[in-house]
Simulated scan of single mutants.
Amino acid sequence: MTSSEVQAAGASAIRYTGRLTLRQPEAQDIDFIADMFSRNELVAHRPDPRPDTPEESAARLARDTAHWRDHGFGRWAALAGENLVGFGGVTVSKEFKGLNLSYHLHPDYWGQGFATELVMEAIRFGFEDVGTRRIIGLARPANPASRKVLERCGFSLEREVMLHGAPTNLYARER
């Protein structure tokens, strides 16, 4: 699907699930992002498990904003009530066939079902609004929580790939 076809799909900037409000990331989210990616437990499964610097967090937010501008959709900021709990959604993959699912929750909100809720809405959006036939999710073998979320949401392990110099499991869900 081309960028113009994706934009023509008419992505709504705000979506609602049972407990979450999903919206485009905003500049005011930077402090939350910097705090979230400074947490050792959040970055523990990276090839280099070093927390992000404030500049790296700002670059992350800039990439998310640019994706929305370029494609008309992207990773959402996820709020439970008034509290920002994380970010996630689908983005155009440059390396793999299908949209790429990604999600990060602040550790304070782990274990409450928010990741599953966010992922299910991202799947619904990718298939129904964007019209993709395939969504992929990438999880490090050492991150069983991420693997469980993907499996719970109907993804199947397809193969191992090298990503950023480390073995990574590629999961896929077809429409």
Rank of each mutant, 00 (worst) to 15 (best):
F37Y: 15
N83R: 13
G137S: 08
A122F: 07
A66I: 10
I33Y: 01
E82R: 02
R133H: 14
R19V: 07
Y16R: 10
L150F: 12
W76P: 01
R75P: 04
E56C: 00
Y103R: 00
V92W: 10
R147T: 15
Y103M: 04
T65P: 03
S12I: 05
P141H: 09
A139P: 03
G10V: 11
R134G: 06
M162I: 15
A34R: 06
D35W: 06
R15W: 12
H104M: 02
T65N: 10
A80V: 07
T116A: 09
D48Q: 14
D29A: 03
A122V: 07
V130Y: 05
Q24L: 05
A11Q: 03
S38N: 12
H45I: 04
K94H: 10
A8W: 04
N40T: 12
R63I: 11
S4P: 00
T116M: 01
L79S: 14
L150P: 09
T17K: 02
L61W: 07
A27N: 08
W68L: 00
Y171D: 05
H106I: 10
S4Y: 08
I123G: 00
E5P: 01
D29Y: 03
A59R: 13
L118M: 14
T132C: 08
K94Q: 14
I123M: 07
S93M: 03
P167L: 08
H45M: 04
S156N: 12
G131Q: 10
D35I: 07
P25H: 02
H45K: 01
V130K: 02
G113P: 06
F96D: 07
R15I: 05
F155M: 03
G81P: 14
F125I: 05
G137M: 02
P54F: 04
P54Y: 10
N143V: 06
P51Y: 06
A9K: 12
L105G: 03
T21S: 11
D129Y: 00
Q24D: 03
S156E: 15
R159D: 09
R75E: 11
A66Q: 14
L61Y: 07
R159Y: 04
A59S: 13
A27Q: 13
F155D: 04
G98C: 05
M120P: 00
T17A: 09
G81I: 13
L79T: 15
A34I: 09
A44D: 10
R124G: 13
T53W: 09
G137Q: 02
M36H: 06
T17R: 01
A9L: 05
A34Q: 13
G165F: 11
V92G: 02
A78F: 08
F32G: 01
T65F: 08
L79G: 03
T2N: 15
G111W: 08
H71W: 15
G111Q: 14
G86S: 10
I30P: 01
Q7E: 08
A145L: 09
V161G: 06
L99R: 03
P25M: 02
M1R: 11
R50Y: 04
V6N: 00
F125L: 01
A66D: 15
A77S: 14
T168P: 06
L61F: 09
P141M: 06
A172T: 14
S38H: 08
G137V: 01
S156C: 06
T53D: 11
A166F: 07
G72S: 12
L61S: 06
S38A: 15
N83S: 15
L163D: 14
V90S: 02
V161L: 08
A145N: 14
R124Q: 11
I14E: 15
R133G: 07
